[in-house]
Design a protein around this nucleic acid. Sequence first.
DNA 1: GTGCCTAGCTAATGCTAGTTAGAAAATAGG
DNA 2: CCTATTTTCTAACTAGCATTAGCTAGGCAC
Lengths: 206, 206
Amino acid sequence: MKSSAKTAANAERKSVVSRREILDAAAGLFRMKGYYATTLRDIAAAVGMKAGSVYYHFDSKEQILEEVLDIGIRSAFEAVRKSIEALPETATWRERFRVALNAHFASLFQLGDYLSANLRVFGQAPPHIYEQHIRIRREYDDYWRNMYEKAQAAGEIRSDVNLSALRLLVFGAMNWAIEWYKPGKKTVDSLADEYTRILFDGVGPR
Amino acid sequence: MKSSAKTAANAERKSVVSRREILDAAAGLFRMKGYYATTLRDIAAAVGMKAGSVYYHFDSKEQILEEVLDIGIRSAFEAVRKSIEALPETATWRERFRVALNAHFASLFQLGDYLSANLRVFGQAPPHIYEQHIRIRREYDDYWRNMYEKAQAAGEIRSDVNLSALRLLVFGAMNWAIEWYKPGKKTVDSLADEYTRILFDGVGPR
DNA sequence: GTGCCTAGCTAATGCTAGTTAGAAAATAGG
DNA sequence: CCTATTTTCTAACTAGCATTAGCTAGGCAC
């Protein structure tokens, strides 16, 4: 009974391990070179395998992409949601924004390459993959939209502010960071801080 | 004499026309599908040619990419510069920012596909092309940086504002717009207006 | 009409990438 | 250790892509 349970766990683990390694490597390569310029041979080599072996674990290169995209957005969404839930009920919307932004940047810069790979390649993914992926993306979008709406309802965002513009501006800032961020240059905390200050206080004279 | 001048003009025009058509088509296709998923056959078909014929006008697919990238950033830079130069000397830095932003969005959404193709594919361009391209990009970046510095020196941007963060936030917002902008949804003018207001006034209560 | 130049076509080339099927090696369990 | 299963390797295949070299047709000048 016990040894049987151990057998099942071990048998699962090698392929689970290899599968994860492949995904990790793919995420890193997609982020760095994009989907099309990354070959299966590249990915396989990164995990000490040959390209044909990858097919034991995945049906196709496209399936790898789908999973990388999915993991990327879900892990970010989860991190953002969790960090907000961990706040006290009394937290301001400004603080929630900062924390959410922080979690997003943490996902982008600290939790592996999945989100950055996602941001880098989703816009050019094969059409059917893009169409599938856009759904979860909209959910994430709505989550942020909802936050802005509540902040405005609570008076923390002025009523004259166009929330749609705000949302798009912020998403741009959040996501374009992959193009310029260099680890060590700026901590995720300070980045989220500064963006929050700029957005809530504005840069103009008081 | 007259017929000779006409000959030269006509002979130049056909290849100049075809060449431009190829670039226009390439810009559109790169924007839509990315560089790698766009084939020479796609580009050729879009201008009513066959793939082999494109080599009469360009040495390689990469050369087409280089030119699309270059035209994209240069046209934006030029538009921004021109629009600022057309302002009176007394214009505020806030107004200059708005006008520059407006010009950038106009380049992005109204002057063909070059800038949007650029933004979409430069991050995944072949390394030697990327390295070459990044130079002009830095010049554009510096132009904006310079604007913020002067605005801060003039007191129009508060001294406590981290200009580096501001710059990166704004670039993100400016450039990520390719991911969501749908013509007709919002005019370029109103977009630049709204972003300027959010950034200068902030969204928080006064 | 002839000759030259321009602009595009065509068939072919060479290479690469994703993928497959069978063999071999590694792992796991008794 | 042995056996069964899992995991990886390998050689090959096919399709597609960028590119090339030679040809052709049209336009223009003489």
